[in-house]
Simulated assay, not measured.
Amino acid sequence: MALDEPKDTDDTFDVKGLKFVVDKEFMGKAENIKIDFTGMGFHLDSNIEMGQSECGSCGSGGSCGD
């Protein structure tokens, strides 16, 4: 998960006033993506095994799963 601008290869979704940009190919594999804020970061659920999914600093210079 990171901050990004939409590209031609992306789908965009507006959820409760927040804009999400997701790669079309990834979205086809994931089918559904659920993002929850846990208070300590984000928890992602989808049909794809993403390894470590608790991200406290993604998109702000940190890295997930390290």
Score class of each variant (00 low, 15 high):
P6L: 08
G56K: 00
G56L: 00
H43C: 04
D4P: 15
M1L: 11
T9V: 14
N47I: 02
G61A: 12
F26K: 15
V22G: 04
A30L: 04
S46P: 15
G51T: 10
K34A: 09
C58F: 01
D4G: 12
K34H: 02
D23T: 07
D11I: 09
K7V: 10
I33H: 06
G56R: 01
D66A: 11
V22T: 05
V21L: 03
D45R: 01
K7Q: 14
T9E: 13
G51W: 07
V15S: 03
F20Y: 06
D10A: 08
F13Y: 14
V21G: 00
F26T: 13
T38I: 02
D8A: 15
H43V: 03
G17Q: 00
I48K: 06
C55R: 01
H43Q: 11
D4H: 11
D14R: 02
M27V: 06
G62C: 07
H43N: 12
T12K: 10
E25Q: 13
A30F: 06
A30Q: 05
G61H: 14
M40C: 02
M27F: 07
G56V: 01
C64H: 08
F20R: 02
S63Y: 03
T12V: 14
L18G: 12
F13S: 09
G39Q: 05
E54G: 05
L3Y: 14
G59Y: 08
G39L: 07
T12S: 14
S63E: 05
G39V: 05
D11G: 11
D14V: 11
G41R: 00
G17S: 03
D66V: 10
I48E: 11
L44P: 12
L18Q: 14
G39P: 00
G51P: 06
L44Q: 05
D45P: 01
P6G: 11
V15T: 04
K19I: 09
G59D: 05
D23N: 09
G51R: 04
K19N: 13
D8G: 13
G61M: 13
K7F: 07
E31M: 01
G41T: 02
L3P: 15
E5W: 04
